[in-house]
Design a protein around this nucleic acid. Sequence first.
DNA 1: AGTAACTTTGCAACCCGGTTGCACCGCGTA
DNA 2: TACGCGGTGCAACCGGGTTGCAAAGTTACT
Lengths: 119, 119
Amino acid sequence: MRQLVLDVLSKQKAAISLPELEDMFEKADKATLYRTLKTFEENKLIHHIDDGSGAVKYALCQESCECEPEDLHVHFYCTVCQKTFCLNDTPVPSINLPKDFSLEKVNMVVSGICASCQK
Amino acid sequence: MRQLVLDVLSKQKAAISLPELEDMFEKADKATLYRTLKTFEENKLIHHIDDGSGAVKYALCQESCECEPEDLHVHFYCTVCQKTFCLNDTPVPSINLPKDFSLEKVNMVVSGICASCQK
DNA sequence: AGTAACTTTGCAACCCGGTTGCACCGCGTA
DNA sequence: TACGCGGTGCAACCGGGTTGCAAAGTTACT
Ligand SMILES: [Mn+2]
Ligand SMILES: [Mn+2]
Ligand SMILES: [Zn+2]
Ligand SMILES: [Zn+2]
């Protein structure tokens, strides 16, 4: 099962959610897939992305993917195809927090229209 | 009802979620509060914040609060008290998207420890 | 006041993503 | 063969959000 899921993940251009994964298999159980993603994430194979679409999405970690402690790159959510992409080459800009606020991590999601959906 | 909700909202230092609002009233119905927040948002009185905590939170719009088309300021989620704050003075930095990606809006949530929770 | 039209509210049900307990299965090992 | 352990499937549950519908409240007009 994990092999199959890993295959699917590595073939994806966009990040994928649990429900999407579910009906991409049709045969495997939701809980199994859920636990698979969980173990993958614990072992730093994948990272999750909260793009505000209601379902958390997952994408393979890249070579340089330091998901912890701080997510390095920006994510892009296409409002047309509803796909979410890792912009691995777009680092999260550093920001100045008010005094006495300590930074742990940053989630930056840009919405718009992706390259494929531009006409 | 709307008056009451508006009062609560204007007294809040942190953004508030629908469930939080719910048990802050104990008397009003979830649906009513939900619809109240909805109309407030449609009329640009409040804006919503998706901080990844599972529940969308709402905060009053400030004078200069141009929530549309693009959310202007950064939000801060405290991992200790689980409160979410508008950093009204911290604008979202502009970023360079890859070619052919068009920008509509940006959600930037910084997690860490807020001023009150620092020891 | 009486009536009609419109708005707001409460209730209940539903949806959907996520999560968990538990029993079962498959497999390697003593 | 018997045991232990990790993976799987099923079913149930949870929590936030959303909606249909009917009752209650409000407003406008006569
Ligand atoms: Mn990513
Ligand atoms: Mn805000
Ligand atoms: Zn697209
Ligand atoms: Zn705090």
